[in-house]
Computed example of a mutant assay.
Amino acid sequence: MLGLIGLPAFTMVLGPSALILGGVALVRGTRRPVRALAGLVPGATDLMVLVVLVTAHTGFLRPFGL
């Protein structure tokens, strides 16, 4: 859920949070590993979008007019 919310906004905070929480869930042996993976994928996508925006010299607040 954090990864999906983090894609349009708060990419720098929610993307890593989704990766960390999804990874912790997998390491602890959750009964729902598919749900943990479903959190890891958008979290990784958030970080990739952040890297692309920062390297394109637009920053991560530019799309929001800030």
Rank of each mutant, 00 (worst) to 15 (best):
L2K: 06
L2M: 09
L2Y: 12
L2I: 05
L2S: 08
G3C: 04
G3I: 06
G3V: 06
L4I: 15
L4W: 12
L4R: 13
I5L: 15
I5D: 07
G6A: 05
G6E: 06
G6T: 05
G6Q: 00
G6S: 10
G6D: 04
L7T: 05
L7C: 07
L7M: 13
P8E: 02
P8N: 00
P8I: 04
A9V: 15
A9T: 14
F10T: 04
F10G: 11
T11K: 05
T11Q: 07
T11Y: 01
T11I: 06
T11F: 01
T11L: 10
M12L: 04
M12I: 05
V13K: 08
V13F: 11
L14R: 06
L14S: 03
L14C: 03
G15L: 02
G15E: 02
P16L: 00
P16D: 00
P16K: 00
S17C: 11
A18S: 09
A18G: 00
A18M: 09
A18F: 00
L19Y: 01
L19N: 08
L19D: 00
L19A: 05
I20L: 15
I20C: 03
I20E: 03
L21K: 12
L21H: 08
G22K: 06
G22V: 01
G22Y: 04
G22N: 00
G23H: 01
G23L: 01
G23A: 11
V24K: 10
A25N: 11
A25T: 13
L26T: 06
L26I: 10
L26E: 03
L26G: 06
L26R: 11
V27F: 08
V27C: 05
R28G: 06
R28C: 09
R28V: 04
R28I: 05
G29S: 03
G29D: 07
G29A: 03
G29P: 08
G29C: 07
T30Y: 13
T30P: 13
T30S: 11
T30E: 13
T30R: 14
R31T: 09
R31L: 05
R31E: 08
R31H: 04
R31K: 10
R31W: 03
R32H: 15
R32F: 10
R32G: 04
P33E: 12
P33I: 12
P33M: 13
P33S: 14
V34H: 15
V34C: 14
V34L: 15
R35Q: 14
R35K: 12
R35W: 10
R35E: 09
R35N: 13
A36I: 09
A36V: 11
A36H: 10
A36W: 08
A36S: 07
L37C: 13
L37S: 13
A38N: 04
A38D: 01
G39W: 14
L40V: 12
L40C: 10
L40N: 12
L40R: 09
